[in-house]
Nucleic acid binder design. Structure first.
Length: 813
DNA sequence: CATCAGAATGTTTTT
DNA sequence: CATTCTGATG
């Protein structure tokens, strides 16, 4: 493979010429590396342990990215590898971009010469385009987004006469996703997971893959699956890449799924210089295929691996760190790290209970304004320094409402992204067909948008024609429009016009010197798409038109439409944000990797956080992931951290009362200050009963010297005024579990017995759903027909067998 | 084939 | 509560 060497030399030269260091390479290599001096000993170890497998366990805020980028720079600086011989993978485009920038800063130049720094997916696209024929694809394959994927599956299910109500396309899509995350092809699906459409799961998977191949298309999961399979089946291709990548670096290793893990293992087999950076305590994406096991197993999988722990935290105060450590310590499955800091003690973590969610939002609004003014002896803070991190996005609304009424500027991070909006996808479907007339899925999307009188029947007819004649959908549409078969006259006319328009646009785009921006704008106008929204009287129509304008403007930055479409399919970024100081509101998931001086963590109530659903569906594993999520939230805070919960919450139009999160029990009391909510007679949480003290009764928690004591236990022990129903119920629950006994320990014990303990028909009790009868058992998952809540799937460990008389679970209220 | 009213149904998200 | 999806009407 001589071509590759030339590639690399060229890339390296390009990189070299961009560098500002004009000394000869040999001199530079010998020169001391100044960037090493700013590292602590552990970070330095992580940077200098270049040979062999290395696992860097980097706790939150320990300078992980810094170590990683410095390591990369060091590899290049010491001339161990050319930039093109280093594979550096991240999960998000944002992370990849940041890494590029930081390496650029370190080595003093651009890193155009680092062709293999990117996300798993973008690197796989690159590899797959080179070897497409090995996956029976053409190198021009298109990447389907989720919408297209669903549409394709719906077609397939319809063709196979599957009742879409019983077997939804979404369900099948998620199953395919799960299989691909584990790098399983249609032939490798475990038989017990083929339940879809009465045991035809694997069969449909095969059909789906066949259809993708015919369309010359892949979905996101395919990008990894195909590449892994190419590597497995073609040792020569694999060997080529194994030799090329002398060094491999992986960021956020705890988030890798099985397919990514296999991919890495294959690539690292030759040089074995693989360095994975991650934090098992921050693994929060198990629900989308990430395997914490990958990081827990690293030492076994890569023999002789060196494990380096980064434990010095540069982000948070000791109180905040202690709170986070206290919570995460309750998890069983972890490699174990102890974060420390030499920062000043700072302020304790604040905990406050509120009567309801609105009051919580109101109070946090006031606190934010107080930070802004710099009261309580603190320096004034900007709104950019503050963040509210919630478990689920519906919690954001309460804050948005409140902040709108008091005029507090805020930004919501992680809403629907620009390229996921309906109008943008529609517009892009027009572009796609104009660029590649054989893109049937795109054509299908817009064939009746705006309305052209083509309903289900007409579209089916076009599909049928396409199959009969073995032509693309666009050609079938042309034939149908001419014959007028299977549709009204009006529809045939509209369809004929559309086909003619696409013909014209396609020619115009292909013409030399075509102005793709102008043509794109015209496509939207001439197709009637713009007009559709101009006529639309719904309140969001103007915004959509605005978005379309923005889309056309964004085209300016690209050479042509093809380039733009390629970019969009992989880089779905959405950085547009008006400037100005704003409070950030985001989910805990969205906050990973970020930090803020002042952090609010509202909604710490059992059932909401930890989420009931996580616990029901995944049992102890789910609870542990929720706890890691709590850990991620806590460790985002630099100086000020406030946790809060509400006794009552207006959820889905219904008032729901809940208990404080069990994670609050796990906060070490001597690092927490319990606040009194203002404006309440007698206190906050649980103040419904006259004379109840609630949280307000006492000032600071726990006499120091009693480590790891639970905040709530201490509060309950100190005050005799905790007579409210909530407190009594909580006390009852605690008694049931045994004081100080971690709850999950009990669940584990039950887990072991669970499967054998129940049988179909057994009457059981569930904390949230009440009584019901078991209708189905699948491993440790039970389907229960609850008397009040209806049919639910729950993990066996979360129900107990119901006894005739009210047992310990039947808590008096 | 489009439109409207009623029912169902609500995590977390990247590529 | 609010959004999305379904199915029965014009």
């Amino acid at each position: 493979m001589n071509g590759m060497d030339i590639d690399e030399a060229a890339a390296f030269e390009q990189w070299e010429s961009a560098s500002q260091d004009r000394r000869p390479l040999s001199e530079r290599a010998a020169a001391p590396a100044p960037y090493l001096d700013s590292l602590n000993p552990d970070q330095r170890k992580a940077v200098e342990a270049l040979e062999g497998p290395v696992l860097v366990l980097a706790g939150a805020g320990t300078g992980k990215t810094r170590a990683l980028t410095t390591r990369l720079a060091h590899l290049i600086h010491t001339r161990r590898a050319w930039p093109s011989q280093i594979l550096a993978v991240t999960f998000t485009n944002k992370a990849a971009r940041e890494m590029k920038e930081r390496i650029g800063d370190l080595v003093g130049g651009t890193v155009e010469g680092m062709p293999w720094l990117g996300t798993f997916h973008s690197i796989c696209v690159k590899i797959l385009r080179r070897h497409a024929e090995l996956a029976e694809l053409k190198s021009t394959f298109t990447i389907l987004d989720t919408d297209d994927q669903i549409r394709l599956i719906k077609q397939l299910l319809a063709a196979e006469n599957v009742d879409e109500k019983r077997w939804p396309a979404r369900l099948f899509a998620s199953m395919v996703d799960r299989w691909k995350n584990r790098a399983q092809g249609p032939g490798q699906v475990p038989p017990d997971e083929c339940g879809f459409a009465n045991g035809r799961g694997a069969e449909f998977y095969q059909l789906y893959q066949d259809r993708l191949r015919v369309l010359n298309a892949v979905d996101f999961g395919d990008l990894l699956l195909h590449v892994v399979q190419i590597f497995q089946k073609n040792p020569d291709v694999l060997a080529d890449y194994q030799n090329r990548f002398k060094y491999i670096l992986v960021d956020e290793y705890q988030d890798t799924n099985v397919a990514q893990y296999l991919w890495l293992r294959l690539l690292a087999a030759e040089h074995r210089n693989i360095c994975c950076v991650g934090d098992d305590d921050q693994s929060i994406y198990g629900w989308r295929g990430a395997e914490v096991g990958n990081i827990l197993r690293f030492e076994r999988d890569f023999e002789g691996a060196e494990v380096i722990r980064l434990e010095q935290n540069y982000r948070s105060t000791p109180h905040i760190l202690a709170a986070a450590s206290g919570v995460i310590a309750a998890n069983k499955d972890r490699l174990g790290k102890t974060l420390w800091t030499d920062a000043n003690e700072g302020e304790k973590v604040r905990l406050i209970g509120h009567w309801d969610g609105d009051e919580e939002a109101r109070w946090i609004g006031e606190e934010i304004e107080a930070y802004q003014r710099g009261t309580r002896g603190h320096a004034a803070r900007g709104l950019d320094d503050m963040a509210i991190l919630v478990r689920a996005s519906f919690q954001m609304r309460a804050f948005e409402d409140r902040f709108l009424t008091i005029g507090l500027p805020y930004r919501v991070i992680g809403g629907p992204r620009f390229y996921e909006r309906m109008e943008i996808r529609d517009a892009m479907a027009y572009f796609r067909v104009a660029v590649s007339p054989d893109d049937g899925l795109a054509f299908e999307r817009i064939v009746n948008t705006p309305k052209r009188g083509l309903g289900d029947k007409a579209q089916q007819s076009i599909n049928w024609v396409a199959r009969q004649h073995g032509v693309t959908l666009l050609e079938a549409a042309r034939i149908s429009a001419e014959s007028g078969e299977g549709m009204t006259k009006k529809a045939a006319k509209g369809l004929g016009e559309l086909v003619a328009q696409f013909d014209r646009w396609h020619v115009e785009l292909a013409a030399p010197g075509a102005n793709h921006v102008e043509i794109a704008g015209r496509i939207l106008d001439e197709s009637g798409y713009t007009a559709m929204w101009q006529v639309d009287k719904s309140p969001d129509a103007p915004g959509r038109l605005e978005n379309l304008k923005e889309l056309v403007q964004a085209l300016e930055e690209f050479e042509n439409l093809q380039g733009f479409l390629e970019h969009v399919s992989l880089v779905m970024d959405n950085d547009s944000d008006e400037p100005g100081e704003k409070v950030s509101i985001m989910t805990l998931h969205g906050a990973k990797g970020l930090e803020f001086p002042c952090v609010f963590l509202p909604g710490w109530e059992d059932g909401l956080f930890p989420s009931q659903r996580s616990m029901d569906e995944n049992g102890v594993k789910g609870l542990e992931e929720e706890r890691r999520l709590a850990y991620v939230g806590l460790t985002r805070a630099q100086d000020h951290l406030t946790i809060s919960f509400a006794a009552n919450r207006h959820i889905y139009g219904r008032w729901q009362s809940s208990l404080p999160s069990r994670f609050i029990d796990e906060l070490p009391g001597n690092h927490v200050e319990v606040l009194t909510p203002p404006g309440l007679y007698g206190g906050g949480f649980g103040a419904s009963a006259p004379g109840a003290g609630g949280y307000g009764a006492a000032a600071t928690a726990s006499p120091s010297g009693e480590p790891e004591g639970s905040v709530l236990e201490e509060r309950a022990a100190q005050a005799s005024t905790y007579n409210s129903p909530g407190w009594r119920r909580m006390a009852a629950r605690r008694g049931e579990h045994g004081l100080g006994q971690p709850r999950e320990a009990r669940n584990l014990v039950v887990d072991a017995q669970a499967a054998s303990r129940f049988e179909v028909g057994t009457r059981v009790f569930h904390q949230k759903f009440g009584y019901g009868n078991i209708t189905e058992i699948e491993g440790d998952k039970l389907t229960v027909a609850f008397e009040k809540a209806g049919d639910k799937k729950v993990v066996a460990s979360f129900v107990t067998e119901a006894r005739a008389t009210g047992g310990a679970d039947d808590v008096p209220f």
